Simulated scan of single mutants.
Amino acid sequence: MSAQFTIPKFKLPGFIASIGQKLPQWPHALALVAGLNAALKMKLLPESELDALADKLFRVRILDTGGEATYTYRNGLFRPVFRPEREPDLAFAANLSAYLQMLARQEDPDTLFFNRELEITGDTELGLIVKNMLDAIEWPQLSAKLPLLRH
């Protein structure tokens, strides 16, 4: 039996974000879209909700790294958007530790939001759909498909 790793709440030093903002942002979008499309292929995302995401623009900002990724869902795939021509329909902003805590299911998005550690702006109904999709992901199923996540 392995010990449970807890992700601490942290904030990277300010100079990291100032450097990160000056770097190209396209690798972030490509990495996020690759992960989302892998989740699609593994059937981890509830297909019944995907139509609600069609042609919507999403942005994820990692405040303390200066990283940003903008993407959309079109024709059955998540796709990066390198030069968005409008504000996103739904945007998330948080420090790296908050995203890691969500991914590890250590904190839920509601708690982070109400503690002002996760900023969500845009279409409220779309935000609830995305939150419910993330909540529906069965992590034991994911760890079975990705051997590195097994304990």
Rank of each mutant, 00 (worst) to 15 (best):
M1S: 15
A3T: 07
Q4I: 08
F5W: 06
I7C: 02
K9P: 03
K11C: 00
P13K: 03
G14D: 04
F15P: 10
F15T: 13
F15G: 10
F15A: 11
S18N: 09
S18W: 04
I19A: 14
K22D: 09
L23H: 14
P24K: 08
P24M: 05
W26M: 13
A31F: 04
V33C: 09
A34Y: 03
K41S: 02
M42T: 15
L44Q: 11
L45K: 10
L45N: 08
P46G: 11
P46V: 02
P46F: 01
S48R: 14
S48L: 04
L50F: 06
L53E: 04
K56T: 10
R59M: 09
V60T: 15
V60D: 05
V60K: 05
I62S: 13
G67W: 08
E68G: 12
E68A: 05
Y71V: 13
Y71P: 14
Y73M: 13
L77A: 14
F78L: 01
F78I: 02
R79E: 14
P80S: 03
F82Q: 09
E85N: 14
E85R: 15
R86T: 15
D89T: 08
L90Y: 12
A91C: 03
A94W: 01
N95H: 06
L96M: 03
M102Q: 10
M102W: 01
L103M: 04
A104V: 06
R105D: 08
E107H: 07
P109F: 00
T111Y: 02
L112A: 14
F113W: 03
R116Y: 02
L118R: 08
E119T: 15
E119A: 10
G122S: 10
D123Q: 02
E125H: 11
E125C: 06
E125F: 03
L126R: 09
G127H: 08
I129A: 01
V130H: 02
K131S: 00
D135E: 06
E138N: 12
W139A: 07
W139D: 05
P140K: 14
Q141C: 12
L142V: 12
L142F: 13
L142S: 02
R150C: 11
H151K: 15
